[in-house]
Write a protein that binds this DNA or RNA. Structure first.
Lengths: 207, 207
DNA sequence: GACGATACGGAACAACGTTCCGCTTAGCAA
DNA sequence: TTGCTAAGCGGAACGTTGTTCCGTATCGTC
């Protein structure tokens, strides 16, 4: 799932040995960047990251020539964690409930990524690999949840998972403080999914 | 509708006479900013605007101490134009159709404002006046459309206009190219509105 | 035409992303 | 252990940005 994307970032390529200090600094940078991104967003000053990691600017640019490389590396495991949560939810809950709960989990994940949306849509080709990874991890997960709910007759079957993924992310990312707006609007989207579904129609309120 | 927001930006305050060169430069800056914003987004370098306007940096900061002042002044008439389109739509179309058509008009307006979303949600208090103006112009307009459609039994009545406004804008702004995603997702939102409404339930597809 | 108030322009400053290069250090061989 | 070499390191330095400041130019009036 991450054969090409990984190479050149973590430095654990097959044919080359990595010097110990290089690996150490890479890890320190990833750790520091994760903290700084969560605190100040992905647009945080580079020097803030290098200072926290205790390395020079040159070191950062050696390991992550593109800023997107650093961002991608930091977020990849969070993406994986969110995607991997879906099977458990599907096993524990009814189809619609599992779908709703995973979307809530997804909004929780996206909600901490301030500034990421702007970066993704900045038009800078350096960020082009990020949406691809998001997509290839999340689309199958959401498709499975949607299909299961559709087979149960609880949601309609004509909605593209990628559409719903983008829409949910777009609704979530711009929120600064959690005033319930995101949850209400995602619930509204889910009601839209249920509208006209084959199953029983009970009433609004998906969450 | 714009008593407080206007003062101090256009320079046409009541008690003070404005020097001719000051007014000339204000107009030149507004005109230049409008062009630059449309071309390079609202994050365009300040010097690009001052150069096009043929003024110094000091002149810009004198007339627009906050960057948001300039942005607000440039976009205000576009906001007004969009808001003012609602009554005509309401007069020409059925309640639900008028609501849908105005939301489409609204997405068209928002769709050209690349970078504005990031600015609005950057957390910088300097931009706090912009959402206020958007809100005070658009919320009453959308509320009227929603109320009319709700009275006709075509949509539910428990949706806050401001919520719907933000959601639609959030769905629209991040789009780089128009692949129909925004229209599909706004249609899904509208289906969510129709879900559980008092009137007849016909089937999905609001557009 | 002269005067005071107002506004102008661009140099100057601070903070940023990014590059570059002399120095350090890890890894290996003897 | 010692010495060698290539890889890697740190931070100074550069260009670009937003923003401020102040000597100078201009406007409006007498």
């Amino acid at each position: 799932m991450s054969e090409e994307v990984d190479a050149g970032v973590t430095g654990e390529r097959a044919g080359k040995r990595v010097r110990a200090d290089a690996q150490r600094n890479t890890d320190a940078l990833l750790s520091a960047a994760a903290e700084v991104f969560a605190t100040s967003g992905v647009d945080a000053p580079v020097r803030q990251i290098t200072a926290k990691a205790g390395v020079g600017a040159g070191t950062l640019y050696r390991h992550f020539p593109q800023r997107s490389d650093l961002i991608a590396a930091v977020f990849r495991h969070e993406v994986d964690a969110c995607a991997d949560a879906a099977p458990a939810l599907a096993a524990q809950h009814e189809p619609l409930e599992a779908l709703v709960k995973w979307l809530q989990r997804f909004t929780g994940f996206i909600g901490t990524k301030h500034g990421l949306s702007a970066a993704l849509h900045s038009g800078d080709p350096a960020y082009s690999s990020l949406p691809a990874y998001f997509q290839q991890r999340f689309v199958p997960v959401l498709r499975a949840l949607l299909d299961r709910a559709a087979e149960a007759g609880e949601v309609r079957s004509d909605v593209d998972p990628y559409d719903l993924l983008r829409a949910t992310a777009n609704l979530t990312l711009p929120a600064r403080e959690d005033d319930g707006h995101t949850q209400r609007m995602v619930a509204l989207l889910i009601d839209g999914l249920r509208f006209g579904a084959g199953g029983t129609v009970s009433g609004p309120g998906a969450g």
